[in-house]
Simulated scan of single mutants.
Amino acid sequence: MTINVRPTGAATTIGRSSPFFEEEHDMLREQVRRFVDEEIKPHGEAWEAQGFVPREVLRRMGALGFFGIRYPEALGGSGLDTRGSVVLAEELGRSTFSGVAITALVHTDMASVHVFNAGSRHQQDNWMGRIIAGETICAVAVTEPDAGSDVKGIRTTARRTADGYVLNGAKMFITNGVHGDLYCVAAKTGNVGGGSKAVTMFLVEKGTPGFRVGRALDKHGWRSSDTAELVFEDCLVPHDAVLGDEGRGFYAIMKNFQNERIVIGAMAMGEAQAALDMTIAYVKTRKAFGQPLWDKQAIRQRLAMRAAEVEAGRQLVYSAAWRDARGEDVTREVSMLKAYCGELVNAVMYDCVQFHGGMGFMRESAIERMARDARVQAIGGGATEVMLEEVAKRL
């Protein structure tokens, strides 16, 4: 279902316009923000406790068009570009429930994209409608216990037989791994110790014999996002389960890394902005030594500097998304923003917890949860150190 982007008045109510966006992006932002306020914030704590986002909520997001933002109208999507993904990610990040955000964003921008980009006509006809509707939730299974950013280092194998491919191995830290329906799995079809041409992507459905969830993982943050270890033991999938061409999986993963990292950067800046807004409101009312904390020069100047840094990060994300939508090579800029935004959101959360004082250390405080959620932003999707090496190569 396409997004309803009918104007609601002479101007949107989002409070910010940008030369990087068009009217349809502003209207999308308004719709996502309304959904966050009405359907995520009131229930997010319950989802944190249960460890996953209810399926009916994901179907609702599909019905509103949020899962088809980047896909063609012919498939039931809205046909928007990278900037649409940035709007969705930033506003979901502002929800303060990053586990909910990453549940949706892995589905939209990190997993289902493999079906759209490399899937056969049959695979797309079979799956894309259900993916966009939120009826089928996707996960991408690349990371392993001994291979994260080093995709070539994966050890899961797929041996070709007369009946199909037999998968053996394990995947780790897989978002949507417990409650997902369709998994885009990376495995070695060539020399296990070989390079990029040894990796192939496969579509594996939940319930396939030999495929199981090894265990649900207990995380520091992102508590409302289910995360799993996956196990493949002589898991037979048909020949037509290959996504794209055999031996091209590494390139498919690398192709989408730029989009994934832009989305994570946007999500991080949404989180950081929400934390700043929350903290500024708190220090203007919380008194110490007879005065609001806002009256302390050191506090308001630190927050002012953080606000400037977040604005810089946001504009870096916007610029990269705009250039990516134009077809430009933004590998350097995306590596910059992933490193910068991942580190910045953690620095912002540190200060926000500090300025909340003892309340910032309490589990009942939103800022405590947000600080835990932010930590992984400097790890997932490309660790800061890996991103800085990518930048250094291009200086």
Score class of each variant (00 low, 15 high):
371 A>V: 10
352 C>E: 08
365 S>Q: 14
379 I>G: 02
370 M>N: 04
351 D>Q: 08
331 T>M: 07
293 L>E: 12
325 A>E: 14
359 M>F: 12
377 Q>W: 08
345 V>K: 02
310 V>I: 11
295 D>V: 02
375 R>S: 12
309 E>P: 04
338 K>W: 12
373 D>W: 05
305 M>K: 08
365 S>D: 15
335 S>A: 14
312 A>G: 01
299 I>A: 03
362 M>E: 15
346 N>P: 01
312 A>D: 12
367 I>P: 02
302 R>W: 07
294 W>G: 02
386 V>E: 14
302 R>E: 15
327 G>T: 01
380 G>R: 07
334 V>P: 00
292 P>V: 06
386 V>L: 06
321 A>D: 04
322 W>E: 10
323 R>V: 00
303 L>I: 08
355 F>C: 09
343 E>N: 14
370 M>D: 09
378 A>Y: 03
350 Y>D: 09
346 N>C: 13
299 I>R: 06
309 E>R: 11
316 L>S: 12
320 A>E: 13
371 A>I: 05
370 M>R: 03
370 M>P: 03
358 G>I: 12
326 R>Q: 14
316 L>H: 01
386 V>S: 10
382 G>P: 06
342 G>T: 05
353 V>M: 10
317 V>Q: 11
314 R>E: 13
319 S>F: 10
294 W>Y: 15
319 S>I: 01
354 Q>C: 04
354 Q>F: 15
378 A>L: 08
332 R>G: 03
316 L>R: 02
340 Y>F: 13
335 S>Q: 09
305 M>S: 06
295 D>N: 10
356 H>M: 03
295 D>S: 08
363 R>A: 14
344 L>I: 10
326 R>F: 00
318 Y>E: 15
323 R>E: 05
360 G>N: 05
347 A>P: 00
367 I>H: 04
309 E>F: 12
317 V>W: 02
334 V>R: 01
313 G>L: 00
383 A>N: 09
385 E>S: 10
304 A>T: 15
357 G>T: 07
376 V>P: 00
342 G>Q: 11
380 G>I: 13
360 G>I: 03
339 A>F: 11
335 S>G: 07
307 A>L: 08
